[in-house]
């Protein structure tokens, strides 16, 4: 079984970059790391291949520069190989542009199953997995809490407003995985050493037959017209607990007439 996992390298959420006051664009020339949300998809893929007794896990990712450190993290977890589409033309891509590139790269890998996070931690559009599925002409199941594969069928427990749906889906298919459903393994020292020699196929969009005007700023069907500081919420009273802080909370709730 060949599983492709879409992963994203993002600025460290603890240091996400800043707004350039002059250009009103987000300054993002910071180090990129593996989006933590993607570690669940990688772990899920490794477990599914394990359970199947055969197969491989291949990563697909895109960046506007040559960054690979996040990919190496996922390779160190145990993924076998990666395709990185790194092209300056990708800067400014919207979700649809992103999906076009990922779909083209995934198609070349001919996977049985495509996994992704439900959304990235930085852009959080939440539409890429289903867009990729549509571009590939595949069924999709989003917000998976559990996945089991038997033969050419995946059984997925999908989060819903009311609870969960049990969905049966023929493969190949695209499934997006919610965080927290598996425990991502930490890369071992051996894994980290091995990851350095695992194949990372670096491509330009031209290699995928995608025209530059379909991606990046040029291909984005949207533009930012304004960036403004949000009104700040003022901090209120701060009490250091001396053993009786709960009384202050009760009094506060009393004042609000909610108890």
């Amino acid at each position: 079984m060949k599983v492709v996992v879409c992963v994203k390298q993002i600025p460290d959420p603890a240091d996400p970059g800043a707004l350039d006051p002059e250009t009103k664009t987000l300054r993002r020339n910071v180090k990129l790391i593996l989006d933590e949300s993607d570690s669940y998809g990688v772990e899920m893929a490794l477990q599914l291949v394990d359970a199947a007794g055969e197969g491989s896990v291949h990563l697909v990712s895109m960046v506007p520069n040559d960054e690979v450190s996040g990919l190496r993290t996922a390779l160190a977890m145990g993924a076998d190989s990666a395709t990185l589409i790194s092209d300056e033309a990708l800067a400014g891509s919207d979700a649809l542009g992103t999906s076009r590139v990922l779909a083209a790269a995934i198609e070349r890998a001919e996977p049985d199953l495509v996994l992704a996070a439900t959304e990235s931690s930085d852009g959080y559009t939440g539409v890429v997995p289903a867009q990729v599925a549509e571009l590939l002409g595949l069924p999709s199941v989003t917000f998976a809490k559990e996945i089991a594969v038997e033969g050419s069928t995946a059984t997925v427990r999908r989060q819903t407003e009311a609870g969960a749906d049990l969905v049966e889906c023929p493969l190949p298919a695209v499934v997006s995985v919610t965080a927290g459903v598996v425990e991502p393994r930490y890369p071992s020292f051996r894994g980290i050493m091995q990851a350095k020699n695992k194949p990372v196929d670096q491509l330009k969009i031209a290699d995928l037959g995608i025209a530059a005007e379909r991606v990046g700023w040029a291909g984005a069907g949207q533009e930012i017209t304004d960036v403004a500081e949000a009104p700040e919420r003022a901090a209120g009273e701060v009490v250091v607990d001396e053993g009786d802080a709960h009384e202050r909370i009760v009094a506060f709730l009393d004042e609000l007439k909610v108890i």
Binding site: T160, D165, V167
Partner: peptide, 12 residues
């Protein structure tokens, strides 16, 4: 080919 996924059961 996009329509293969089917809900078999719903849990509340």
């Amino acid at each position: 080919s996009t329509g293969g996924a089917v809900v078999r059961d719903r849990f509340t």
